[in-house]
């Protein structure tokens, strides 16, 4: 129906410029391409999920005594889930305020030349491979920071998370979390910077014209505007921290779950899989894949929570 008129026009000898209306066909090609690309992503995601579930089933159905640790899958997975969450939480607690501060400094306080240099350096941080962060964390940071752990264990040991004896090597979950925080810092910073830059000048001027200081202007105009974007940035950082494998595998001397952050111990899912997969077979492989499935579910849940947080304030987002 839609393609018929141009053909008739062509036959009637109408000039080519008018007759050559193949844009409906172009639209169709483009929309098909876009649809295919979209479906492909869903298919890949679905495929991964199916693979994980199918391969993991033996771990769920096996005799609990056969699973590593001998107490069933839940007893195996629970400590490393908690370890994963602790490491990621440490990373975010450290990285989020620093990232937002740096992004604000770049966008609203620094002179232009310093701002662009600083932005460049931050982007460089993102380009460093994770194995290098791991090597740095294991051979340098852990050694340098262990006296601080000893001090913490002595002076703040009554707080459970700092209870001693502190690890002599410094290869603890706290070190891993610090290394992770450096790794997620560039992600959160560069995304926040982009969002802060997009704050409408109109709103910034509205605040300034009311007699707001620069910091008050940021609280009134920049943060409310940037909130959904910053939440997304933090969630992307969290995704990286949850899934980061190499750095944690190198930095953390893993062990059983402990509350103390300054003792060696704890383990994350990603590092557990990486360290054990090469020599695993049979049920052990199924167990590790089941652990991967759990990580997949956690990441999915985190993203859904983030979307919910963002949509909760839609009415006040200024999009209407």
């Amino acid at each position: 129906m839609t393609t018929a008129p141009p053909r008739q026009a062509e036959r009637a000898g109408v000039p080519a410029a008018i007759a050559a209306q193949d844009s409906p066909r172009g639209d169709k090609v483009f929309s098909t391409l876009a649809l295919t690309a979209g479906c492909l992503i869903l298919a890949v995601l679905f495929g991964v999920a199916v693979f994980l579930v199918v391969q993991a089933i033996p771990a769920f159905t096996a005799d609990p005594a056969d699973i590593q640790g001998g107490k069933g899958f839940l007893a195996y997975i629970a400590p490393i889930v908690i370890g994963t969450v602790i490491a990621a939480a440490i990373a975010l607690v450290i990285a989020t305020p620093i990232s937002i501060g740096v992004a604000l400094f770049i966008t609203h306080f620094a002179p232009r030349r310093i701002a662009s240099a600083l932005g460049y350096v931050i982007d460089l941080l993102a380009a460093i491979p994770s194995v290098i962060y791991g090597a740095w964390g294991a051979s340098f940071l852990a050694r340098e920071i262990s006296p601080a752990y000893v001090w913490l264990a002595e002076n703040a040991g009554w707080i459970p998370i700092f209870s001693g004896p502190a690890s002599a090597t410094g290869k603890t979950i706290l070190t891993a979390g610090i290394v992770l925080s450096v790794m997620v810092l560039p992600i959160i910073t560069s995304l926040s910077r982009e969002i802060f830059l997009q704050t409408p000048k109109l709103h910034e001027e509205a605040a300034l014209a009311l007699g707001a200081t620069r910091w008050e202007m940021i609280k009134m105009a920049v943060f409310p505007f940037a909130r959904p974007g910053v939440v997304s940035a933090i969630m992307l950082g969290l995704g990286r921290a949850l899934g980061e494998t190499m750095a944690v595998a190198l930095v953390l001397s893993s062990g059983a779950l402990t509350v103390s952050l300054v003792q060696s111990g704890n383990q994350t899912i990603a590092a557990e899989i990486a360290l054990n997969f090469p020599e695993a077979s049979g049920l052990k492989v199924a167990t590790l894949i089941a652990a991967g499935l759990v990580l997949f579910v956690i990441t999915l849940a985190v993203n859904m929570v983030a979307r919910w947080i963002i949509s909760r304030h839609k009415e006040f987002s200024g999009a209407n």
Binding site: P200, L202, H203, A206, A207, M220, P224, S317
Partner: peptide, 15 residues
């Protein structure tokens, strides 16, 4: 804060 201003385009704080 002593000299108020109204701008070309209405700019209430959207949030």
């Amino acid at each position: 804060s002593h000299v108020g201003m109204v701008f070309q385009r209405p700019n209430p704080f959207p949030t």
